[in-house]
Nucleic acid binder design. Sequence first.
RNA 1: GCCCCUGUGGCGGAAUUGGUAGACGCGACAGAUUCAAAAUCUGUUGUCCACUGGACGUGCCUGUUCGAGUCAGGCCAGGGGCACCA
Length: 853
Amino acid sequence: MSRYNAKQVEAKWQSAWDEKNTFEVGVDHSKPKYYVLEMFPYPSGNIHIGHVRNYTMGDVVSRFKRARGFNVLHPMGWDAFGLPAENAARDKKIHPAEWTYANIANMRRELKSMGLSLDWSKELATCHPGYYGHQQKLFLEFLDKGLVYRKESWVNWDPVDMTVLANEQVIDGRGWRSGALVEKRKLNQWMFRIADYSEELLKGLDTLDRWPERVRLMQENWIGKSSGAKVNFKIADSDDNLEIYTTRPDTLFGASFMAVAADHPLTQSLKDDNPAIAEFVAECHRMGTSEEAIEKAEKKGVPTGLYAEHPFIEGKKLPIFVANFVLMDYGTGAIFGCPGHDQRDFDFAKKYNQEIARVVAGPEGDESPIGEEPYMGPGKIINSEFLNGLTTEDAKEAAITKLVEMQSGEKTINYRLRDWGLSRQRYWGCPIPVVHCDNCGTVPEKAENLPIELPEDVTFDKPGNPLDHHPTWKETTCPSCGKPATRETDTMDTFVDSSWYFARFCAPRDEDPVSREAVDYWLPVDQYIGGIEHAILHLLYSRFFSRAMKETGAVDFEEPFSGLFTQGMVTHETYRAEDGTWLFPQEVVTNDDGKPVHIETGASVTIGGVEKMSKSKKNVVDPGEIIDKFGADAARWFVLSDSPPDRDMEWTDSGATGAWRFKQRLYRFAVENLENIAPLGASESSAIEGDALALRKEAHKTVKHVTDAIEKLHFNNAIARIYEFMKALSEFKGNGSDGDKWALREALEMMTGMIGPMMPHLGEEIWEMLGHDVLLADSPWPVAIEELTVDNTVTIAVQVKGKLRATIEVAKDEDAKKVEEEALAEPNVQKAIGDNPVRKVIVVPNRIVNVVI
RNA sequence: GCCCCUGUGGCGGAAUUGGUAGACGCGACAGAUUCAAAAUCUGUUGUCCACUGGACGUGCCUGUUCGAGUCAGGCCAGGGGCACCA
């Protein structure tokens, strides 16, 4: 018998799909649409196993929905701008474009070998002028609507990548890509007004019921809404005020000092005449974000010599400090310190000997002075004149009401979310289409001049921005006055590229950035699939972009992704040689004693923990090799089986082998049974009974369950049921009757249909063997007949005092009395009851009988 | 510190949402086939005991219930997110 040759068969069907343009789609109002999108990859050179998992899941959904009658958009493209290309240019002397396009070519080939149902005619790369030119157009439209602005601001400077990072891109004080300690610098920056959308972005989360709860929660925390009050403190012996933000106006009577940020205007105005302040400000800047982690505990400050007047307490003056724990870009950059009820203020007050008063009674009315710990909980207000006796909650309102009356404060909602700085001092990114003119200032480019293309002749031997070093590129004329002017040399953060690609995919060659006809039909994305690492940045930016594009009239929706699924990572065992160095999995074999050893030297190897695959720990497997060895179908099958898709899965060779075995088994079964099945199109036999009926029922039950499981993305579950069904298929012994033959064909066709989305090549191969001349990819999903999925007898568990004593077979929906009689008649049940009187018998129809004694 | 998630055999994990715990896969063991092996097929496989039966068993403790992996309260462990955010 011919053995299944995966390589040959997979290539055959891949070209069949290609030739027939099977997966090319367009707007078609006669069908319901379904947009499946996986987060597009960065073209690093090779796909990794995480991609295999991600794209396989998307492909199953895509093929499944297709078979269910949807017009499915399933595109693929490249997140192709970014620093690695410039690093490659510097290190290997390859132009970023050349490097990127070569990587794309290779990864496209690798993805194609997976047999994905992608519409390659919609492929796009963000580094192509045909993409980024439209992005520049969007930028100008945003500029026109006031959604982008330029301001001088403190930025996070990555000294290794020599670029600016958004707050979100700084993790533990380090650049998210380079890992370098980030410094503070002041630069002119282009900003998106994402903070203006804080409330909308927060509210919108409630509508995203097909998003993971934890992603919504993470975004909610990130937006960080808080409600409190702005309070104006008069600065003593001056006409100036100091405005602070607080969420605890109820503790105003506990105020003992004030603190402002190093970058606060008040500090700035004082530092020229006060060397101590100047020195402290410099120290704060040196610290940057970077050393915060290290110096976390240390609350420091210097007195300004100024005092603020307490709004409620006549004659009470509070010293004003500059403090390192007050942030300029949160609230107003100034606070009042209430050491009795705030940890930071408490630490600060201890260090600088400030008064620590209690204004909130502790649990059980504790009014004793604050000791070693501040009290942060709720309670009754004390020592606070008109607030006395109120709860903390009521006191907040009362304090604000009073402040409003006195015209020295107001209720305020504050958000943690800040505007998104998008300027990057890089070459390999989308040029910001504006011109700086001595006469006219900052002028947007004319739309007809777009795209502003990157120059090709650039050098990467100097640090800093190659666009800035270019001898002529930035020389231009002012779009407004026509005089010589210079181009903006900053390029856009690559997160801009990925904030709208889902919309461009709908009509990637359209002359407008987005085609209204196409996006109105396709968007929002019905199922978006990607890694949890994008829970905040990419997803929040895309949600902002959708709103901004709605503002400019480009689209008519707020939420770009109605369904989101975050898949888990792929992990693998780690291996270490005797000298402690990491080893690749393929360097390790098991010796005769069952111990792991090095394949060449035979030296013993330590098996370490199961960890996320990483190049540094060498616990990686190469998808290319896997597909070569097991075939794409087996690789796809394995990444879907076993582990739930949202959890991490461990890649094991034995698991992959298991998938391979199943593929062989099914193929063999099909080949061996071609003689035993009814001809294609034979009408249903009237004589389907016995084993044949049982098989039919099993087939229809399986279809029902698998359909349900895939709908919920429970791929591991679907696969488990298919395995069970495979067993039933193998065990079926037909007697050659028409009924048996008919049932076997039906079962085998259903099996083929169900494995189709997961193992598409094998599916097509068997489908063809079964006599079909329409592709499986173009055939409808098997439909379960409801009556065949229900049994007319059920097995009921009989418990005595909650413990299982017997099981009985009864007719479905049997009368409760009869079930009870049968249950009590069981010898084991009688034995368990013994001499005890039966107090009660609970009968749950078709489920269980519980005898209470 | 605050918030969230997870905890089930040797391992990955099922469990119709309060109703027979351990489906399915991996591994292991035994057998068939084979000169032998690979491949394939068939069994067995939660723990314990006085083994044709029974006891125990879903991180730990308490509770609700006829009945708890599932619900409630309190712990423990692992993972993730957030944080000088006023």
